[in-house]
């Protein structure tokens, strides 16, 4: 347990812009984080903060422009396509959109068995494993012969989770996996994530814009703001008594589903905003 499962130090990512002489735009300015085995690290941030890019860099879907990513002690920052293929047994992904993350023309069974066959499983073994996976995510046994369009959003997300579990990975990058789901479905899928973690000991890098979701599933939470991690800590501390002003704003902006409590929170938010404005005015005067 001395070396963390995933260790990211000073990660930088820059995208080249479009046009005649494209300028590089840096979206991550040196992000560091680590995840232990069986742990969930929640990454919370708003749109454009770079939270999704962290996950994509770990998966090798974007190339880092600086920093280092280590997995089980080995440097995978610039892993070759062949190394990536080996790594895919250990690092998997669940994406946000359950409608585009499954190939509409492949049956659920094909989608699930494809990576297994590529990794060298026989057809029979793969079939048995697919059955087991479907059971594990709570889908009917005959789901394997059906096409994605026959399933609802929540069920498709279960398929996506099964696909991620197929090679028995150590880490799953979850990119807003419940954001596109309805409220009641969202709660069930979150419970599934937690159950699976308890059973298998897989670690999650769990990216979301929703503080409540991250609080619910994470052991530790990092807050991303404009390409930097501004705060990291145990989930209950970061999500209830945050230290960084941005996290405080984020927390107070999320409405509570209770009219009375929400009125208090609103008053608190206005008070804090007023305070910040006065501070700014004073700083301007001084």
């Amino acid at each position: 347990m001395s070396t963390p499962l995933l260790d990211v130090t000073d990660l930088r990512v820059a995208f080249t812009g479009r046009g005649f002489r494209p300028k590089a735009v840096e979206v991550l300015h040196g992000v560091s984080l680590s995840i232990g085995e069986g742990e969930t690290l929640g990454i919370v941030g708003e749109s454009g903060s770079g939270k999704t890019t962290i996950g994509r860099a770990v998966l090798g879907l974007v190339k880092p422009s600086g920093g280092r990513i280590r997995f089980q002690g080995a440097d995978i920052t610039h892993a070759s396509p062949r190394d990536r293929r080996t790594l895919s047994k250990s690092i998997q992904v669940v994406f946000q959109d359950p409608y585009t993350s499954l190939n509409p023309s492949l049956t659920i069974g094909d989608t699930l068995s494809e990576p297994l066959v590529v990794q060298g499983a026989t057809a029979g073994d793969a079939r048995a494993r697919v059955q087991m996976l479907l059971d594990q995510v709570g889908l009917p046994r005959d789901a394997g012969e059906r096409l994605p369009r026959e399933f609802s959003g929540g069920q498709r997300q279960r398929v996506a989770i099964a696909r991620a579990l197929a090679p028995k990975p150590k880490l799953i990058v979850c990119d807003e996996p419940v954001s596109a789901l309805d409220l009641s479905t969202q709660a069930r899928v979150m419970d599934l994530f937690i159950d699976i973690q308890r059973q298998t000991g897989v670690a999650y890098l769990f990216v979301s814009h929703d503080l409540a979701v991250v609080r619910h599933i994470s052991h530790r939470v990092s807050v991303v703001y404009k390409g930097d991690i501004v705060e990291t800590g145990p989930a209950d501390l970061v999500t209830s008594t945050p230290e960084h002003p941005y996290t405080q704003r984020l927390l107070l902006a999320a409405p509570i589903a209770d009219p009375v409590e929400q009125e208090k929170r609103r008053a608190e938010r206005h008070r804090l905003a007023e305070l910040h404005r006065e501070q700014n005015v004073q700083a301007g005067v001084a």
């Binding site: 998966l59 090798g60 080996t86 790594l87 998997q92 992904v93 190939n103 990576p115 197929a166 090679p167």
Partner: peptide, 8 residues
């Protein structure tokens, strides 16, 4: 993307 992550 998912297929790439799956090692295809």
């Amino acid at each position: 993307d998912a297929a790439r992550v799956s090692g295809l």
